[in-house]
């Protein structure tokens, strides 16, 4: 396999592409009129992340990161809950995970395939500020910090230069 004509993944996944995917995901999943606004605000002290892995010609993950309170508010919006109904940890894992899943599936389609998508995972390990983020959008939803990042898998053979081999 030659990688001499490899296209950097940063070119395939420019900020505009990731934003346009978020623009379609938010109204559909989070609610009518909702939007992910690409304007950074102060990052939260404590964070929760949900992510899906992509494995194929390129290996990595699509990660959604925000404060636990933002994750709960997102979940309430996705599940359309009304007071006094409260969301629990399982709901948050489910809703945040599905957001990461839908973002991830659409981001995967932009990359040369075929690739496989992992099932959504959720955790507190903050993947913020990693050097191998290939695309990272710090933004906000309803004024709260929210980050979408696409990260190359460390140590994976094809991703050392974050390039995707052409077919």
């Amino acid at each position: 396999m030659t990688t001499s004509h490899a296209q950097p993944i940063t070119e395939l996944l420019d900020a505009e592409t990731v934003q346009s995917i978020a623009d379609e995901v938010w109204p559909s999943l989070v609610g009518d009129g909702e939007a992910f606004v690409p304007l950074p605000v102060a990052p939260p002290a404590e964070v929760v992340s949900a992510w899906v892995t992509i494995s194929g010609p390129w290996n990595g993950a699509v990660v959604l990161t925000c404060a636990p309170a933002t994750a709960e508010a997102l979940t309430e919006s996705v599940l359309m809950t009304r007071p006094p109904t409260v969301v629990d940890a399982e709901d948050v894992a489910d809703a945040l995970g599905e957001l990461a899943n839908v973002l991830g599936g659409n981001i995967k389609s932009v990359l040369p395939g075929p690739s496989a998508l992992g099932l959504p995972r959720i955790g507190t390990a903050p993947p913020t500020g990693r050097l191998d983020d290939v695309r990272r959008i710090d933004g906000q939803w309803r004024g709260q910090s929210l980050t979408i990042s696409v990260q190359g898998a460390t140590g994976a053979p094809h991703t050392e230069r974050n390039e995707v081999p052409q077919q």
């Binding site: 909702e34 939007a35 304007l39």
Partner: peptide
């Protein structure tokens, strides 16, 4: 555009 659509305006016009 109903009140509450401020974020939509922000996202589309930014």
């Amino acid at each position: 555009l109903q009140p509450g659509k401020e974020y939509l305006v922000e996202a589309r016009l930014l």
